[in-house]
Amino acid sequence: MSVDFRTNEEPEALGGFAQPAAPTSHRLTRGQLVRRRFFRNRGAVIGLVVIGLLVLLALFGSYLLPWQYDQRDLGQYYKPPSGRHLFGTTQAGFDVLARTVRGLGKSLVIGFMVAVIQTTLAALIGSSAAYIGGWYEKAWLWVIDLMLVLPSFFLIAVVSQGGPKGTYAWLLLVVLLAAFGWQLSARVVRSLSMSVKEREYVAAARFMGLSTPRLLVRHIVPNIASMLIVDVCLGVGYAILGEAGLSYFGYGVQAPDTSLGTLIAEGAQSTTIAPWIFLAPAGVLVLLVMSVNALGDGLRDALDPSSMSGGQA
């Protein structure tokens, strides 16, 4: 594979020597480069489109769909999919599509919140551990080990079993999922930050008297931003699956709230007589997680300059 130096993002690296003139092509910015590499990946683009559609559906579904999630169609019990109810009805005559869309909304909100919180935690803890070092670093590494040893599923279930119930109980779930989700990413952030912290500009910033928190946020974290973006994206998938798994056993989102997990658990009760109640939320869950994974993989390949799968820019 030939390497095109005109696309190199750091022309200064050539030490100020005049570069070979390239009259026929212009230099690409990093943004353009990443965008080209990303849009060449068909799976990732499809994933992005599907996520966009699902988010729109979750946001505006209640205005577009003929039935509301809490609206009964009396007499229409356990009806298979038809023109009247696209995904059929439940035992009590609720529209499966409307309920799936509502569950999807909650799953998406939880997924995004957890992913953003846990990646933020990972970035702050991982980079500060690498930069400060010493006992501070040892202590965090030890905490990470400690939390990895514990089976998080059971602990989250214990807390959510004993924790508060009600409308905002799902926020506790978000906190718990994030609290047990940042450890592996923090390790990766730490090892990436180790090399960044040796750079000259970090030393320069330090000697100019920049405070440690500011130095981390301004000079270290931006340099690992591509890893963090991918981490958020893949984190959404893990969080949605984690929430659904807990809800499947009744330890996640509590009634009257619904998520894809609670709907799947509900549908699993009647797979023999009314499989559509199970298949609709399960299908949407798989579709969503697949799209998020494809998007994350695509972003990684596009952002990682050493990756070959993005092709040449």
């Binding site: 998938g237 499989p275 798989v286 997680v289």
Partner: peptide, 17 residues
């Protein structure tokens, strides 16, 4: 890719069906 995105309870229920 489909299998990785499918949690085991979905795989299990579908197998049962």
């Amino acid at each position: 890719l489909i299998l990785v995105a499918t949690p085991s309870y979905v795989t299990g229920e579908v197998t049962k069906m």
